[in-house]
Computed example of a mutant assay.
Amino acid sequence: MSLSPDSNSTAPAGPLLSVSGVTKSFGDHQVLRSVDLSVARGEVVAIIGASGSGKTTLLRSLNGLETPDTGVVSVGDVTVDFASLAGAKHGIVDRQRAALRDRSAMVFQHYHLFPHKTVLENITEGPIVVHKRPREQAQAEARALLERVGLDDRADAYPHELSGGQQQRVGIVRALALRPDLLLFDEPTSALDPELVGEVLLLMRDLAAEGWTMVVVTHELQFAREVASTVAFIDEGRVLEYGPPAQVLGEPREERTRQFVRRLTHPL
């Protein structure tokens, strides 16, 4: 099964994702410092940076899992001005965050599958409970997606019966089943054994080739070089460098970017 990447929207003009002036602090620690980002429909953006640079916080802010202090995030026809939500009632904030989640889906580093539910139940939970789709329709789509990724025989298995690579592929299928406009990946291979990384990256390559819009926090520089159309290097909560992979990874303008790329390319 191949879901259309824009099946959940009317494809308005302009970038699919727009981020302007996003800031976020935890106590006295400022994690994001006026981040701007623009992602066109069908573009794959790889976000790289050192641990603690703000990559995951930014990604979670795009999906409404974190609430920025200030800034505007737009996904498709949904726009949330977080500064205007300061002091608002919880119900209003929750509805705004939920609106972002209706347009995007997150694939987590550690899978986040429900351990007490089967693979099929994990995938259909969102479409049935949140999107109110008929159970038969949601199950049929889930089985078709599982067949596509070579896991059709694991629909009735539980997460503990799967390898890490299989669990992560189920996590990706779960995201696809929501029919999002935007796919968000948070270090999707970092929790996998090295021999299982390839199967997940191959699936992500296929999704990119189909035209899915993806923002990927990753340390896999080879994947960023070959699949991403744009690379964003984040340092201390700021987008320090942004451009094509050949420029950011091959000929970075900033010394800090050069240090980071060199460290990942030649770790010893």
Rank of each mutant, 00 (worst) to 15 (best):
residue 2 S to T: 15
residue 221 L to A: 01
residue 233 F to Q: 08
residue 82 F to E: 05
residue 143 R to E: 11
residue 245 P to E: 01
residue 11 A to G: 09
residue 19 V to E: 05
residue 159 P to C: 12
residue 147 E to W: 02
residue 171 G to D: 06
residue 203 L to E: 10
residue 225 R to K: 10
residue 264 L to C: 13
residue 215 V to C: 02
residue 245 P to V: 01
residue 261 V to C: 11
residue 73 V to S: 07
residue 196 L to M: 13
residue 236 E to C: 11
residue 92 I to A: 06
residue 152 D to S: 15
residue 234 I to R: 00
residue 181 D to R: 04
residue 156 D to V: 04
residue 12 P to A: 06
residue 123 I to D: 04
residue 114 F to G: 03
residue 10 T to K: 12
residue 237 G to E: 07
residue 233 F to C: 09
residue 83 A to C: 07
residue 72 V to G: 07
residue 1 M to C: 10
residue 257 T to G: 09
residue 11 A to T: 14
residue 227 V to R: 01
residue 153 D to R: 14
residue 180 P to M: 11
residue 207 L to R: 00
residue 76 G to P: 12
residue 68 P to E: 04
residue 27 G to H: 08
residue 118 T to P: 07
residue 246 A to C: 04
residue 162 L to T: 13
residue 77 D to I: 09
residue 208 A to H: 01
residue 44 V to T: 15
residue 33 R to N: 14
residue 190 S to W: 01
residue 179 R to Q: 13
residue 165 G to M: 07
residue 206 D to L: 01
residue 48 I to G: 06
residue 217 V to H: 00
residue 152 D to W: 13
residue 75 V to L: 10
residue 230 T to N: 00
residue 256 R to I: 04
residue 60 R to A: 10
residue 63 N to S: 14
residue 31 V to D: 11
residue 72 V to K: 09
residue 1 M to Q: 08
residue 77 D to P: 10
residue 169 R to H: 13
residue 255 E to Y: 07
residue 175 A to L: 10
residue 172 I to L: 05
residue 79 T to C: 13
residue 6 D to E: 07
residue 239 V to W: 06
residue 208 A to F: 00
residue 156 D to H: 12
residue 15 P to C: 05
residue 15 P to D: 12
residue 175 A to K: 06
residue 6 D to A: 13
residue 85 L to H: 05
residue 238 R to V: 15
residue 168 Q to P: 11
residue 94 D to V: 14
residue 177 A to G: 06
residue 202 L to V: 11
residue 158 Y to W: 09
residue 48 I to N: 03
residue 143 R to Q: 14
residue 98 A to N: 11
residue 148 R to F: 08
residue 26 F to D: 08
residue 184 L to I: 10
residue 97 R to P: 05
residue 105 A to W: 01
residue 195 E to T: 01
residue 103 R to G: 01
residue 136 E to D: 14
residue 169 R to V: 13
residue 147 E to Q: 15
residue 163 S to P: 03
residue 192 L to W: 00
residue 242 Y to Q: 12
residue 221 L to E: 02
residue 61 S to D: 11
residue 120 L to E: 13
residue 246 A to N: 04
residue 182 L to I: 13
residue 225 R to W: 03
